[in-house]
Design a protein around this nucleic acid. Structure first.
Lengths: 141, 141
DNA sequence: TTCGGTGCAAAGGGTTTGCAACCTG
DNA sequence: CAGGTTGCAAACCCTTTGCACCGAA
């Protein structure tokens, strides 16, 4: 499980008609340095407030949701705030193990929909979610 | 899929050491009248504000989360607000089909964890979520 | 040069909390 | 009668929005 490098995210943005602003690269760069982990919007903002002159609070929000909508990130809502995680591959659809201690993420390449017979005649299925929560090996020890 | 009647919820509350206040029964009663459906806290509050003299806003919130913690309800977070749904059986763990049009719920009695080999050696699995989203037969037609 | 993107400041809106009064068990 | 529960009002806090300026392509 390899995270893309910044250059690859730049291309992804441009291919979708979005500009590569320094602020966007700053945010992506922050996530690249903490790979495979859910990070709260609050924490990202705190980081940039300390090193002033940088993406502002609202720019962080706007772009985190943009990145999510572009498929670069996944988000979950936990205890009153949004958490974001930089996917290792923008085009893949993963199911995740999420450590409730450190918020680290393990991508599961199995999908219940491929295995189970979800028999729902006359239902139109659009998307689904499968998330496993627990404690990762590092936090366990 | 049968929803419990009010009497059964009363017993469940008392068995867990909680009091059966009129407010709690009002809230449960509201959900019993709209079975198998996610309802927003906002909607519940609106209902009681119109028929004044009734659970107040904060009592509604306090009890919805209490009911959830007792296993009587499930909650999801969608578009900035919490939605609650009264389970047909407090002790069962369901996976759900959720209609994005009408928020109706279909309980799936299959569980991916029983079928798949989620092979995560040294991981401690606590709980998991499997939710399927789409359009139910009624909204489809 | 253009129009998407940013920063500021203020508002929005769902949710939570402290505290005194209330009422179930 | 006691301790859990409620209602009020105010606070909280994450998030969103309008608008003028800026800067990537």
């Amino acid at each position: 499980m390899r995270t893309l490098n910044l250059e690859e995210y730049k291309i992804h943005l441009q291919d979708n008609g979005y500009k590569c602003t320094p602020q966007r690269l700053e945010i992506l760069s922050f996530f690249v340095h903490y790979p495979s982990r859910f990070i709260s919007a609050k924490l990202v903002i705190k980081h940039f407030q300390e090193a002033a002159g940088n993406p502002s609070l609202d720019t962080v929000y706007r772009n985190l949701f943009l990145f999510r909508d572009l498929g670069l990130m996944e988000s979950i809502f936990r205890e009153g705030e949004n958490l974001f995680y930089l996917k290792s591959n923008p085009t893949a659809h993963y199911h995740l193990f999420i450590c409730t201690e450190c918020l680290s993420v393990t991508e599961l390449d199995i999908c219940p929909m491929n295995i189970m017979e979800v028999s729902l005649p006359n239902y139109q299925i659009h998307h689904h979610k499968f998330e496993v929560y627990g404690v990762c090996p590092i936090c366990k020890s």
